[in-house]
Design a protein around this nucleic acid. Structure first.
Lengths: 144, 144
DNA sequence: GTAGTTGCAAATCATTTGCGTGTCG
DNA sequence: CGACACGCAAATGATTTGCAACTAC
């Protein structure tokens, strides 16, 4: 039973402080929400989650904060279709996404072999790979 | 010196007819523009190019047409950042994009082996692959 | 104290849509 | 002729922003 204690800094809040961001109440709440989110919420969803912890937060602030954190490299923005941007906390290793087109759910997976492969691809074209993304749009196999 | 003759059907127009689309004047013009575009224009740019050939075209129609052609599989929609969707004519084999981060230029390449690989990836996760995208962000190798 | 932040509502921007008119098949 | 396409302008939906009040440092 882990206790969520407001006196304990969330992972993201720590990162914000490292980057020298001014930590307001709303940013602390949003940071906490992000730290606890292991999916790919959109702004609306983040706003909903944050409001649950503190009703003194506006969507505008969520938009502003999310943009700020993306600029700082703390968050990554994705376009998985559906019209709204979705966010996730930046992780160290490259990982890929499989989007279930029926449910919109996103499955993450890693494949270090594939990373090497892609580096080779870039090299063959005369480039050094900086980053890359691989996204699969797929439908669950039916076992009738 | 190839002649562009209005009596000759453009490649895309042919595809539209195959799909049973009603061919209006505006659709013919847009089809022609698409046939001649070997880059990744956004709607605004398509509208500009179409207007050059025929000033009797509205942006709304370009939006409608582009959506229709995407549904028919004749066009592909991309999000390369920048807020607006970009389009290209669907080619038979899946191809990938390498974006030169210094110039913004997009290099296309194919890799049929990789397509199979990705299908395997999806299968391993219990999915049938519908489509996928691989985008490399890279920098040209310096040979000083 | 002061630069940076917030909430609110109005503004933007890309894209979609309702409607009366026009046209392909 | 009848279903569908068009232009126009108004509507939409996500995201941004101006402004006056507030707060972290």
């Amino acid at each position: 039973m882990t206790r969520e204690n407001k006196d304990i800094l969330s992972h993201i809040e720590r990162l914000c402080i490292e980057k020298g961001l001014k930590m307001t109440g709303q940013r602390r709440v949003i940071a906490r929400v992000l730290s606890q989110s292991h999916d790919h919420p959109d702004v609306e969803e983040l706003y909903r989650r944050a409001s649950r912890l503190d009703d003194n937060i506006s969507v505008a602030t969520v938009y502003r904060t999310v943009r700020l954190l993306e600029e700082k490299g703390i968050l990554e923005k994705h376009d998985f279709g559906g019209g709204r941007a979705r966010y996730e906390v930046t992780e160290q290793g490259t990982h890929y996404h499989l989007i279930d087109v029926d449910t919109g759910k996103v499955i993450e997976f890693e494949d270090p072999e594939h990373v090497k492969l892609v580096q080779q691809m870039a090299k063959k074209l005369g480039f050094d790979l900086l980053q890359h993304r691989l996204e699969l749009f797929a439908r669950r196999i039916q076992e009738k």
